[in-house]
Write a protein that binds this DNA or RNA. Structure first.
Length: 421
RNA sequence: GGGGAGGUGGCUGAGUGGUCGAAAGCGUCCGCCUGCUAAGCGGAUAGGGGGUGUGAAACUCCCUCGAGGGUUCGAAUCCCUCCCUUCCCGCCA
């Protein structure tokens, strides 16, 4: 959420940013409501001030003749106050629909095609034979099962089996160990269901409710990402400046309805209603947030480097960036069998956009007024697509899949995923 | 699910109708004292919003004691609903 003062002071800036992001922003409506709200507030406060003054007098003098006036003032304050509350509620509702600004370094663009590659690591491997997609390999080795998953749950679900299930577990373990031991993150195992307030805090609501699954009859949502419980971990707290930055890593399943993706990535282990992810979240001081984004992105990249997977880091352009992000990098890893890059990570900085919604504050130093923290998050990594890239990159001519060196300790020393695996 | 207790500032915790945004303590900051540190002494210290206004300030008013509603001229305090925490009982992986 953007501060109302900013919208008042520079509505054109807010409008322009929203336009470039391709998001509607009810700026003019907000300005109109703001004016009316302030008028109603002034009227209510005037009446209440007078009422308070008389009330003090009455407490001392018990002068009964004051009562009728006090009663009238009370009614007036109530009347204007109710109007002010109504306008403010509408104002707050609209404020939740105003997208975040973006950093000046974000490329202006109209579509995915305008994203800018900022670096790449490795190169497309030459396998010396026709590479197969992960779903063919997975089914041939009997480590991925889409048919039974469709029967048990529906489309966009999968079973992993045997060495496939173990591979995902190994990857999770490897990522968590890397980030906790080498990158200084504290591990959380968060709740996988959260309430509406948390979804609002990270800006998954009100705009993206269609994307999430909701528990019927309860105020609970299946998390679309661990970012939601993680970023809300310190909701409504007053942090001490000396505690920052806070770095958290968590494994969780993620659930998404994929409402807008009908017909897209229907084949394979790519776009699932449920997928596993290792997520990084940082709470930092405002002046440190852009640097923290680079650091966070780097931490995600290390995972791919250790796995020996070729990838590109893309700076998202305005149109591809989304409602809440201030700046965002996607990391796309190469899947030789599919012959395309898969988005395995998305790393974003939100500035104080989420912090305002979730009331994440810190006191820079004793005696100083509180400030909002800046929040960041990034996948490191999404397991589905990482597994695809591992399988497709390490596939052998004989149909087996070599286990990357870093994963061998997590796979009980297993060298190859084979039919017996 | 049944019954009890409770949710107050950065923290602990008092406060059952007006003089309470709120005692006291802790923490923190400033000053004094001390060769230095500790101790001691004095002072300061919640958040949010509106108005006037400035380079910053300053002044002033309003709101906020878990959330929402009600009673009252007036609510942290009384009533209702909900949420959360905790204890006992029941159920249960």
């Amino acid at each position: 959420m953007l501060p109302l003062e900013l919208i008042r002071k520079d509505p054109e800036l807010v409008k322009r940013a929203a336009e470039l992001k391709g998001e509607p922003a009810p700026v003019d409506e907000i300005l109109r409501l703001d004016t009316r709200w302030r008028q109603a507030t002034a009227a209510a406060e005037l009446a209440r001030a007078e009422q308070n003054a008389l009330s003090k007098e009455f407490a001392k003098s018990k002068d009964q003749s004051l009562l009728p006036r006090m009663k009238r003032l009370g009614e007036s304050a109530k009347f204007h106050g109710a109007e002010a509350d109504r306008l403010r509620a509408e104002l707050d509702r609209l404020l939740l629909h105003v997208p975040n600004l973006f950093h000046e370094s974000v490329p202006v663009g109209e579509s995915e095609a305008d994203n800018v590659m900022v670096r790449e690591w490795g190169s497309r491997p030459q396998l010396g034979f026709e590479p197969r997609p992960h779903y063919d390999i997975g089914e041939a080795l009997d480590i991925m099962d889409f048919e039974r998953a469709a029967r048990v749950s529906g489309s966009r679900f999968a079973f992993l089996k045997g060495a496939g299930a173990r591979l995902e577990r190994a990857l999770v373990q490897f990522m968590l160990d890397l980030h906790t031991r080498e990158h200084g993150y504290t591990e959380l195992l968060p709740p996988f269901l959260v309430n509406t307030a948390s979804m609002l805090g990270t800006a998954n609501l009100p705009k993206f409710g269609d994307e999430a699954f909701r528990v019927e009859g309860r105020d609970l949502w299946l998390i679309p990402t661990a970012e939601v419980p993680m970023t809300n971990f310190h909701r409504d707290e007053m942090l001490d400046g000396s505690q920052l930055p806070l770095n958290y890593v968590a494994y969780s399943p993620c659930w998404r309805s994929e409402a807008g993706a009908a017909g897209k990535d229907t084949r394979g282990y790519i776009r699932m209603h449920q997928f596993s992810k290792v997520e990084l979240v940082k709470l930092v001081k405002p002046e440190a947030s852009l640097e923290a984004l680079e650091e966070l992105t780097g931490h995600a990249e290390v995972v791919l480097q250790r796995l020996g997977l070729h990838y590109q880091v893309m700076a998202m352009c305005t149109a591809d960036m989304g409602f809440a992000q201030y700046k965002k990098y996607d990391i796309n890893a190469w899947a030789p069998g599919l012959g395309r890059y898969l988005e395995v990570s998305s790393c974003s900085v939100f500035n104080d956009f989420q912090a305002r919604r979730a009331n994440l504050r810190y006191r820079p130093a004793p005696g100083q007024p509180p400030r909002f923290v800046h929040t960041l998050n990034g996948s490191a990594l999404a397991l589905t697509r990482t597994i695809d890239c591992v399988i497709e990159t390490y596939q052998q001519a004989d149909g087996t899949v070599a286990v990357p060196d870093v994963l061998k300790p997590y796979m009980g020393g297993l060298e190859y995923l084979g039919p017996t695996g």
